[in-house]
Write a protein that binds this DNA or RNA. Structure first.
Lengths: 108, 108
DNA sequence: AATATATGCAACTATTTGGTTGCGCAAAAT
DNA sequence: ATTTTGCGCAACCAAATAGTTGCATATATT
């Protein structure tokens, strides 16, 4: 759980993906997150650390509470990758695509 | 490297992401992939196994060669997640956003 | 037929990971 | 002032991971 600051590695863990989705709705404290699903506070805290390291999440202290919220921009890294990927695919497969679409509708 | 059949975990590894991008351009054999960057054939083969397990990649035997190619549809799982995420963000934050911005600037 | 090539599989290793427990500290609540 | 609460940190542990090496097997090449 150490020096990993890669968005993709951060969202590899299902618990972390859940946390990210939770935080999409609003800012939360570690305790509040932990209560949302069966995970100890410490476990959540560690996940938050990972998410914070890759800057998917930002922490803000408010009194003795820490409020974690998403860094929307960071999600764009994932989007970018997907986009790059899709462009490559489209270039190669733009004709094949139609065939595949037909196959799909046929199957269902 | 065992029973992991999760797209997100599959693309967590940078080498695997590179492989996926390579395969976006066209179908390749393990050896061909390994030559593309500094990784042993075995290592690549293992990565391909992971990618195949989560169905991001499909294998086709051709004589003694295995040809690996992408499964475009699987990428949609990632897209879906991102989409879900973005919707949450937009729904909740289009008004809240301003408030949060104000709070932030006030505190600083 | 004999050799070379392409590949997958199993065993082994070092590293990383997710999780727990125990601690300390600072901010609230009493 | 004392206790409670929210949190992060460090140490530890079991499991998983990425990678290596050494096979075995099937298909090409000679």
């Amino acid at each position: 759980m150490d020096a990993r600051r890669d968005v993709f590695q951060a969202i590899a863990d299902p618990t972390r993906r859940a946390i990210v989705l939770l935080l999409a709705v609003g800012s939360l404290t570690p305790n509040a997150i932990a209560e949302h699903f069966n995970s100890s506070r410490q476990a959540v805290s560690k996940h938050l650390k990972v998410l914070a390291e890759c800057e998917l999440v930002r922490a803000e202290q408010q009194g003795r509470e820490m409020h974690y919220h998403l860094n929307k921009n960071k999600l764009k890294e994932i989007e970018k990758w997907l986009e790059q990927f899709k462009q490559l695919l489209e270039k190669r497969f733009d004709q094949l695509d139609n065939v595949l679409e037909q196959l799909k509708t046929k199957r269902k």
